[in-house]
C-alpha cells in the first residue's frame, strides 16, 4: 500500500515537474505555449508568464551572436522592438547555441543595442520544446500565450527594403485581436542551425 502511494506521489511529482517538456518540440499552432523560466545574460531569472503579463502579444525570437543570418536581422529586431514596445508587445530573445556563453551574449546585446531580454537556454530545452531549428526563428504568441505565427521575421534576409514583413503583418493582427489567416501562420526561413548540446539521435533522411 505504502509503495503504491509512494509511486503515485513520485509519478505526480515527475509529471508536474517535467510536464511542460513532456512533449518536446510539440508547441503547436493555435495552442497555448507552456510557461518556462530562463536566466538573462546578467543572471536574472525571467518567466514567460511574468514577461508576457498584460501584453497583447509576445514575440519569442531564437537568435545567435555568431550566426551571420541572425546578425543580419539585428537592426530589424531593434526596429521592431522600438516600433512595438509601446503597443503592448513583449520581445524575448532566446540564445540556445551551446557555444555562445553568457558573457559573450551580454557583450553582444550591449554592442547591438538590444533592449529586450535575451535569455540563455543552456541545454537547449526551450529550443527543443518549441521545435526551433534555426536562428533567427520567431514565434508570435497572443495575449493568452497561444501560438499565432511561426517562422521568419520577413521574406528576405538580404533585401529588407522590399521584403514582405511577415512578423509585422501578423503582429498587427494579433494586437488588433484579429484572426490570422491560415496561409499567414507559418513561413520558412534560411538560417544557421541551432547548435545543440547533445547529438541528434535520429538523422533525418528520406525516403
Amino acid at each position: 500500500m505504502k509503495t503504491s502511494v509512494l509511486i503515485l506521489v513520485l509519478t505526480l511529482t515527475l509529471t508536474f515537474t517535467f510536464g511542460m517538456f513532456a512533449e518536446a518540440g510539440k508547441v503547436k499552432m493555435d495552442k497555448k505555449v507552456g510557461n518556462f523560466t530562463l536566466n538573462d545574460a546578467a543572471g536574472k531569472r525571467h518567466s514567460l508568464k511574468d514577461l508576457s503579463k498584460d501584453k497583447k502579444g509576445t514575440v519569442v525570437m531564437f537568435i545567435a551572436t555568431q550566426c551571420p543570418v541572425s546578425n543580419n536581422y539585428n537592426e530589424r529586431m531593434v526596429k521592431l522592438y522600438n516600433d512595438y514596445k509601446d503597443k503592448g508587445v513583449q520581445f524575448i530573445g532566446i540564445n540556445s547555441n551551446k557555444q555562445e556563453a553568457i558573457d559573450e551574449i551580454a557583450e553582444y546585446n550591449k554592442a547591438h543595442g538590444f533592449e529586450f531580454a535575451v535569455l540563455k537556454d543552456a541545454g537547449n530545452k526551450i529550443a527543443d520544446y518549441f521545435g526551433a531549428k534555426r536562428t533567427p526563428e520567431v514565434y508570435l504568441l497572443d495575449e493568452n500565450l497561444t501560438l499565432r505565427y511561426h517562422g521568419a521575421i520577413d521574406s528576405s534576409e538580404h533585401e529588407p527594403e522590399t521584403a514582405t514583413p511577415y512578423l509585422r503583418e501578423t503582429l498587427n493582427l494579433v494586437i488588433a485581436g484579429e484572426e490570422i489567416p491560415d496561409e499567414m501562420k507559418e513561413t520558412k526561413v534560411f538560417g544557421c542551425t541551432i547548435k545543440r548540446v547533445r547529438k541528434e539521435t535520429k538523422r533525418r533522411s528520406t525516403p
Binding site: 534555426r134 528576405s156 520558412k188 526561413v189 538560417g191
Partner: peptide, 22 residues
C-alpha cells in the same frame, strides 16, 4: 548563389519538407 526576394518561396520551390536549415 541564392538571389531571391522571397526565401520561403525559394525553400518551398526546392522541397516542401525542407525548413531552410543548411
Amino acid at each position: 548563389v541564392k538571389d531571391t526576394k522571397d526565401d520561403g518561396a525559394f525553400i518551398n520551390a526546392i522541397d516542401n519538407e525542407w525548413g531552410g536549415e543548411i
